[in-house]
């Protein structure tokens, strides 16, 4: 099969949101001697771009976007070790530390965000739920993060987002990170009032915003 045919198959498999089809196409491409980095750049990412456009146009819905992203993630478990062997790892877009504020156990929106970060070329460190402010700050320091993204669904524990920003200020490290806030309990005005660097209504928008913040 010509390389171009492999790329078409990879792209189509992602557009079909079919994990089995994606893995089959990846293995076939690798067997024909196409490099792992090329498989991603020429096959999978063009597919994800189409998926992103379809989602924005409401041609596909969130569960379909999720499945395409999950299929991509599954492919990455095969491709990542190969990229290391090849030594072709490209520049990652940025490093993100994310989690849900202290006292709040809601994880679904945050998990969607993590998945979209990873499929968009970010290195994402997920601290999970019920995360206290020190965990956010310590982890960000440890992994030299570009972005701290804090989710909150409950209005009563929403102030945990402000606490992280205030603690960063107190430590004199506010300028070291971009802080994004989001989740059902938040608004753009809230984000502005606590001095966050950004807010997004959806996980998809959050990744677009993050990309512009780190570039």
């Amino acid at each position: 099969m010509a390389d171009a045919d492999h790329f078409d198959k990879l792209k189509q498999a992602i557009i079909d949101q079919d994990e089995d089809e994606v893995l089959e196409a990846v293995n076939a491409a690798l067997a024909d001697g196409i490099g792992a980095k090329t498989v991603i750049d020429q096959g999978l990412l063009p597919g994800l771009n189409v998926i992103g456009e379809q989602f924005e146009d409401e041609e596909i819905f969130l569960p379909e976007l999720m499945q395409a992203a999950l299929a991509f993630q599954a492919a990455m478990t095969i491709l990542e070790p190969k990229i290391k062997e090849e030594g072709t790892a490209g520049e990652k877009k940025g490093v993100v530390v994310l989690g849900t504020v202290k006292g709040d156990l809601h994880s679904i929106g945050k998990n969607i965000l993590k998945l979209l970060y990873e499929t968009s070329g970010f290195e994402a460190h997920d601290l999970g739920i019920d995360v206290d402010l020190f965990s956010f700050i310590n982890k960000a320091k440890e992994v030299d993060a570009d972005i701290i993204a804090i989710s909150a669904l409950l209005t009563t524990t929403l102030v945990g987002q402000r606490d992280v920003i205030d603690a960063l200020k107190d430590a004199g490290e506010r300028d070291r990170y971009k802080v994004l806030v989001g989740g059902g309990a938040t608004t753009r005005e809230w984000a502005e009032s606590i001095g966050a660097d950004g807010w997004a209504a959806t996980a998809y928008e959050a990744v677009t915003l993050s990309t512009s913040l780190v570039s």
Partner: peptide, 13 residues
């Protein structure tokens, strides 16, 4: 209860 069906176009509550 507060039962809902999420809007699957965007995940909106």
């Amino acid at each position: 209860s507060l039962p809902t069906v999420a809007d699957m176009r965007t995940g909106a509550y």
